[in-house]
Amino acid sequence: MSVVQRFCARESAALGDPLAGSAAHAERNLLLSWPRAKWRRSLRQASDMPEAVNARLEAIAESGRRVNLIHRRDQSPECHRLYLMPENRRYEVPRDALPAFLAALQEDESLARWEIAPPQGPLLLCCTHGKKDKCCAKFGYATYRALAAAVADRGLPFEVWESTHLGGCRLAASAVVFPALRKYGRISDEHVVPLLESEAANHPYLPCYRGDSRLSPLQQCAQVAALEWLAGRDLRPEVRVAEDATAETADRRRLSVHWRDGEQTGRLAVTCEARTLRRHDTCADIASGPPTPSRVWVATALEAVATQY
């Protein structure tokens, strides 16, 4: 008797697990190219990584800068590409010089000897970390290939890389755009070109948008709801989500979202409610036991309020 293979990404989508509010990500990042075949389960370790490099990366992560490994076939395995975000700086470092580079980064010394021209456009990372979760291998790699092919075919201004774990395996295929720090999930073939075109115009692509990583989950929920409401009126404005929310009940919050589009301005009041879902966050969780409760936010009401930006 055959066994139906289960994937956390499919189960999450079937549950109605919302994308909005799931975009948590550190603002300070170090990205280091390393051949995908050598990646381990950890997002920043590889099987052939020298101990001196591994120790430096762990110390950098402990200091508050997230470290991800990235991969492209055209990148030499012996000369590594590194990026600092949000600084948007790019470096080329031979493997034997990595300990010196990482030490200089830790000690806030000059990195000029390794620096090359900054990226000419956004950096787009797509999680393909199969050693972490099989959804990222199954859905992430196909999406990475589609994104890279679309960029090459259309001459779009992106650098597309495979990446280790970006968070939210259940939302595969997942991606993040630097330096804007916008996160996406459930990207499939029909989303690839419109997502790239939207990001090329420096706008979030709403059908797959998880939110601005600089905001809290509640604020992300309100932000995405406001952007969708505005897009329905052919507006793509700048938006600012209030830091404070009005508590209507224990599980109900009301936030203000201010927007500006040229000379037009306005304010929206977005009501978000907490819901509890029982879900598996990763495919490994499926094998280890029943789903566990998770709290999510859902926008349930929105109204326009006359005010100044």
Results as ranks from 00 to 15, higher is better:
residue 161 W to C: 03
residue 11 E to R: 10
residue 47 S to D: 14
residue 111 L to F: 07
residue 58 E to N: 13
residue 236 R to L: 02
residue 224 V to L: 06
residue 62 E to S: 13
residue 125 L to M: 07
residue 100 A to V: 09
residue 14 A to Y: 03
residue 222 A to M: 11
residue 47 S to N: 12
residue 309 Y to F: 09
residue 44 R to Q: 05
residue 79 C to T: 14
residue 86 P to D: 07
residue 76 S to A: 14
residue 131 K to C: 00
residue 177 V to A: 04
residue 159 E to P: 00
residue 59 A to V: 02
residue 233 R to I: 04
residue 113 R to W: 01
residue 78 E to F: 07
residue 292 T to K: 15
residue 20 A to I: 01
residue 193 V to A: 09
residue 8 C to R: 14
residue 282 T to K: 11
residue 262 G to W: 09
residue 119 P to F: 04
residue 281 D to P: 00
residue 171 L to D: 03
residue 214 R to F: 02
residue 12 S to A: 15
residue 186 R to F: 05
residue 198 S to W: 04
residue 112 A to K: 13
residue 186 R to T: 12
residue 14 A to P: 03
residue 197 E to C: 10
residue 275 R to W: 10
residue 52 A to K: 07
residue 285 D to Y: 04
residue 154 R to Y: 12
residue 275 R to C: 10
residue 49 M to H: 02
residue 260 R to S: 14
residue 159 E to G: 04
residue 207 P to S: 07
residue 109 E to I: 01
residue 261 D to E: 15
residue 239 V to S: 00
residue 71 H to V: 04
residue 61 A to S: 14
residue 20 A to W: 00
residue 215 L to W: 03
residue 236 R to Q: 11
residue 258 H to L: 15
residue 173 A to W: 02
residue 128 T to C: 07
residue 84 L to G: 00
residue 85 M to P: 01
residue 247 A to H: 03
residue 35 P to C: 13
residue 194 P to G: 13
residue 54 N to A: 13
residue 229 W to S: 12
residue 133 D to K: 07
residue 101 F to Q: 05
residue 41 R to Y: 12
residue 36 R to C: 10
residue 111 L to T: 06
residue 31 L to N: 12
residue 235 L to F: 07
residue 168 G to Y: 08
residue 186 R to K: 13
residue 1 M to R: 10
residue 40 R to L: 15
residue 134 K to R: 15
residue 254 R to A: 13
residue 290 P to V: 05
residue 215 L to M: 11
residue 284 A to G: 05
residue 213 S to Q: 08
residue 163 S to L: 01
residue 121 G to L: 00
residue 196 L to P: 01
residue 157 P to T: 04
residue 164 T to G: 03
residue 244 D to R: 12
residue 108 D to F: 06
residue 219 Q to A: 14
residue 166 L to R: 08
residue 135 C to P: 06
residue 153 D to W: 05
residue 247 A to Q: 04
residue 303 E to N: 11
residue 292 T to A: 13
